[in-house]
Design a protein around this nucleic acid. Structure first.
Lengths: 105, 105
DNA sequence: ATCTTATTTCAAGAGCTGTTGAAATGAAAG
DNA sequence: CTTTCATTTCAACAGCTCTTGAAATAAGAT
């Protein structure tokens, strides 16, 4: 991935409302949540919520689908995964020192 | 990590010059590089380079040390590691689906 | 002391980002 | 077909970010 594309994805994650949306949707699981419920959960107005949901789904972090009156959003792990892979493999060349800094498993 | 702190770290990564600095310093290894050499490598003016180096070292992505006339910068993997851990464990609750999206090892 | 090299700091300006509240759109219910 | 509910879109605005070029600081060489 070129630096410009990775930078654009990191910019989307550089906002705490948007990180809170991701947390809420990870918790919600495969059923996802409606825009209204997400807004209520993160404590943001409808237009503010919509602004952030748009930034997230435009860049592939979320997928949306209309369900009668509601718009239902759910997480798409592929984009986050691509970003983690970019950091570890592309940017840091698979550094074992970095791997030791990630407390996983 | 709270969302605000993670967002601030992601913001630092949301610029392609800064990602290029990280790439250059990963490549340079433990000896690091001087500010001037970094600037030449990424093709940025001295003040522009300094601006980005400051953003990176202020937030712990880099460490700096004066070596006579030069300021030598080297990568600190801990901050990137903390961010990857945040994404995988904190934000995405260790999701195995996410783990499968990260092409590693 | 003065000069040169390396780097940072500063002020100005252009452009981007996020918030607000109001208006528009979309879909179902009465 | 009007009302209600859910959500997005829009315009305005404040604040932040990045770039530029010039001036300041820091350190070593002459």
């Amino acid at each position: 991935m070129v630096s410009e594309d990775a930078a654009a994805l990191f910019r989307v994650l550089s906002n705490s409302d948007r990180l809170d949306v991701i947390r809420a949707l990870v918790e919600a699981g495969p059923d996802g949540m409606s825009a209204g419920d997400i807004g209520r959960k993160i404590g943001a107005s409808p237009s503010r919520t919509s602004f952030h949901l748009n930034a997230l789904s435009e860049t592939g972090f979320l997928q949306k689908e209309r369900q009668s009156r509601n718009l239902n959003y759910r997480i798409n792990f592929k984009t986050i995964g691509a970003l983690i892979t970019f950091l570890m493999e592309d940017c840091c060349k698979g550094s074992s020192e970095l791997r030791n800094c990630c407390t996983m498993r």
